[in-house]
Design a protein around this nucleic acid. Sequence first.
DNA 1: TTGAAAGCGGTACCAA
DNA 2: TTGGTACCGCTTTCAA
Lengths: 330, 330
Amino acid sequence: MPTIRDVAKQAGVSIATVSRVLRKHDNVSPSTRDRVLNAVTDLKFTPSQLGRSLAERRHAANGIVFPDLSGPFYAEVLLGYEEVAAELGRSVLILSTHGRDAAPAMVHDLAGRVDGLVLFGRTVTDEVVGEIAARGLPVVLLARPRVGDVESVNAENTASAAALAQHLLDDGRRSFCFVGDPATAPDIAERWQGVESVVANARGASLEQVRPEGFGEDAGASAAHRLVAAGLLDALVCANDELALGVLTELRKEAIDVPGQVAVTGWDDVMAARYAGLTTVRQPMRELGMQAARHLDELIRGEQREPRHDVLPTQLVVRSSCAHHQEEPA
Amino acid sequence: MPTIRDVAKQAGVSIATVSRVLRKHDNVSPSTRDRVLNAVTDLKFTPSQLGRSLAERRHAANGIVFPDLSGPFYAEVLLGYEEVAAELGRSVLILSTHGRDAAPAMVHDLAGRVDGLVLFGRTVTDEVVGEIAARGLPVVLLARPRVGDVESVNAENTASAAALAQHLLDDGRRSFCFVGDPATAPDIAERWQGVESVVANARGASLEQVRPEGFGEDAGASAAHRLVAAGLLDALVCANDELALGVLTELRKEAIDVPGQVAVTGWDDVMAARYAGLTTVRQPMRELGMQAARHLDELIRGEQREPRHDVLPTQLVVRSSCAHHQEEPA
DNA sequence: TTGAAAGCGGTACCAA
DNA sequence: TTGGTACCGCTTTCAA
């Protein structure tokens, strides 16, 4: 790989001049500029971002940390994030912690490679968030409650969950079961609270909770299996769409009528939800990512005074998995 | 942010010693080591990845370039890629070109930040691939035919497409229409060829082609709308699942029976395909990403002699969108 | 308009 | 076991 010195030698100028040409300073004579550009082309020179970043004391890159990359939800968020970051001229580093023990170290390492970081959901402890922020690195939390003065972007959960529960009550459901573990992710805790707040105040209504092992379709299916065995079947409020889809699949396998015998709901409105006729709550996934990217950029550029805590609206989407109301499968 | 010199001063040693302690060299006396470690803790020192990388002449990071990040396909590939890269101790930079004019520049820039690059599908021209490779940067092509000696990882397309077409023929379909533009992506061209090779040799069979504007559900829906108007309805072989799902949605809207009147097939086997009962071809998406990551790592470490060109197997998945055979929706 | 040189924050070789 | 120091590749004063 050629360096700036190779170019300088080839063009018969100093490295300072090469740098000026590359950085598009105007105080370079046209003929010199041409010679330099020719040398650059000749040698197929691309400046090392490393050297450049070190000298400029900035990375021109920012990172985003996910708990996991599987499932349609994270992909959409990332899509929005990358789009905005690219427009702002920043490279994007991604990291998926997978609940690994090494997660804090990985995040710290990542922190050393970027000008700012988006931390998604339950990727690291509040303590680690604090450490990163204390290092002076701009941080935006995504789908995670505030930690001190760190900025955050969230989708509304509690109120929509309450609306969802109310909808099910209005449809005559009384025996609720929440499929999801509030301890595993902050949004899920909020959804649980929203459902609880409504069901607790409804006469004759009951609320159970079952904790699947994971967030995927398999976890949903095995949870459904247990629920069938336990006879807990009236309204199954799942923490996300993938769980709900797994539940639907299992119920169909066991020949249980949805929504006749039991209503099933999800959360996120992933693509498959439309085709499965799943009632769910739509989150503005791309917008979450985009907004986080914008806020982070403002923080990095020091344009931000007061920390913001955005809460983006969500929307109940009623489909056939949930009683009498329906909607065209878009 | 403290630097290694701050730590050295605080501990009363030279920066060389600090470096030794940090790099876990053994030739440091315990007492000196302790003093250094205390200073590190005191100052909350984290070594700059920039300085380190510059000195080590390696980024400990590699990049992956997508044409686009939307849709379930890319997400799965990325998931596999990130997982392996993380295990190998490399950070992951992602870039989505979106067919922008600036794509070559963006990729070149990215090339200056990584030790190796995975280029996915039609992100940049063969010429740019050649330039990057000529710079001595390890490159692996993903879902893209070989370019010179550059390594590649692909999923099998042509044979599976032929098998798919044969299956439709066996079911009595004769009037084929391929929904997709072979010019937009190399895999799609191969799928088209596979279908063509079979249909061309079948007596009484015909093959049309319709090019949607894009790869998403909307594009599929409007293509279907045109097809209905044109009466081109017997077997619709779509270039990917999202197009096919859009087609299905539109056909349902127009009250056209699937598979009674028309068979519809996709490609990829995304999650929604299962719930829509879509016949499709399953690609090992995660494995594609994982394999690319592994190969890239071997190239970077110089362990590779002959360039490899992997072709991972795909699998026909017959569901209800396609006549008499069916499969449980998994 | 150009060049020399001092960093940026580390690593690692060579002496002491 | 330690310290001095020459890089790594680039940016940016300061002088010429």
